[in-house]
Design a protein around this nucleic acid. Sequence first.
DNA 1: ACATAACGAACATCTGTCATGTTCGAAAGA
DNA 2: TCTTTCGAACATGACAGATGTTCGTTATGT
Lengths: 252, 252
Amino acid sequence: MGSTDRWRQITDAVREAGRMGVAELAALTGASEMTVRRDLEVLAEQGVLERYRGGARSLLLQGEEPPFALRAQEGSETKRRIAAEVAALIADGESVVVDSGTTCLEVARALEHRRLTVMPLSLHAVNALTSAAGLTLLVPGGRPRPGELALTGPLTAASLAALRFDTAVIGCCGLTPADGLTAYDLEDAAVKRAAIASARRVVAVAESAKLSRTALAFVAPASALHVVVTDDGASEEQTAALVAAGVTVRTV
Amino acid sequence: MGSTDRWRQITDAVREAGRMGVAELAALTGASEMTVRRDLEVLAEQGVLERYRGGARSLLLQGEEPPFALRAQEGSETKRRIAAEVAALIADGESVVVDSGTTCLEVARALEHRRLTVMPLSLHAVNALTSAAGLTLLVPGGRPRPGELALTGPLTAASLAALRFDTAVIGCCGLTPADGLTAYDLEDAAVKRAAIASARRVVAVAESAKLSRTALAFVAPASALHVVVTDDGASEEQTAALVAAGVTVRTV
DNA sequence: ACATAACGAACATCTGTCATGTTCGAAAGA
DNA sequence: TCTTTCGAACATGACAGATGTTCGTTATGT
């Protein structure tokens, strides 16, 4: 598990340079060449890069997001702070649908000891909550996307359409006043829309870096959100623009 | 993990005697009293027994089934043999719904490297299959029952009602020609019925001990099953009676 | 075809984790 | 009050996972 840092280091280096040799990466990370080869094998399986004799070449285009395993531990302190704030916005007894993604996984963890009805949209979050005694856990149907384990498809849509939640906690890949809330994956976007439609109140979580980003798939305009929770890296203009769209912004 | 045997030993001893002292259990298992106390704590959390000062008293009535964690490793060799036989009955490209329970979990594992569409009815099986590359994994909606992680409720029923499978693999707590296929849990029974209704062919798995047992909740008559896979502990009369009901019986 | 570099299987080592045991002060019950 | 049980804290040992090293094999370039 301690290899995650090195994986990120390698992923970033290869992505920047386009391709890189095993020896270079070994020097960069301070690990042996054998270890680098083993890492490259893992990353190649995850589809991050492609091996060739002597090194590896990046497969991640600028528009794509790195796989779940790599994002999971990034800026986890910030994510936990955001998650705690979201948890504070939710009252005992509420029913909550929690989106997929690493930030929302932290939200799910923050709800573990509460007394709620929770439907997570990712199996990672489901697994984090299966032994939570106090809460009623609901699993939506669907097809889990590899790695991410986000549930998508008609079964997910049907599960959401059958229910009405007090609050939806939605993650995103980009959120700007102009382009609204956007996601990398088309199917994910459809699920997010369904989740938003099934909830009375919508809370979006977005690390500040996402407030200047727009991804491929449009989900909803900023005005469809009631609360946005972000971190203190957000600029004045960004928060002001969201407030102007009628959104309550909470910075932690 | 190596504590599972001792857990079963303690559970059985306490269930037989009604209640038992810590010192007695320590002598029985050969472990220290501290270890027995830690075990009792775990088992009390699982609802198997109740602690009192100096010992523990059984909470498992004769009609109840021990929790998943205790059944998981029981007779796993037999279960694997049964599972392999079931896997052999399924052709590539089929769609399969796999019931909850420890035997069916083995079936799910046996399908991991096949090219199929699989919908498991328990999160244990879902987790066992999330990294299976070849197969299309479908997750039904529902409320996971604690420990067992079997999905039940209206969402599960709706997920099953929306689909038609080639084969349903169904587990049971009891299966006799007279009483048909029975389960301990009422909600589980409803899910099993829905699974049977959604499949063209029904394969039931039942260790031979279950062929002389009847549980609380009726699921389906034996005649609703197409194939029963059991182990060689089944008696001639038992298999003959099933065959008379129009079932193909396979003994491994 | 040959030489060289890269590869990966096998083994050795190290480290962190988990189950277990031991000790001892605290708490419950007689 | 006294005895027994309990459980927190620490020590021990087994074990799994990660990393490094060695060496025979394989691929690539000249």
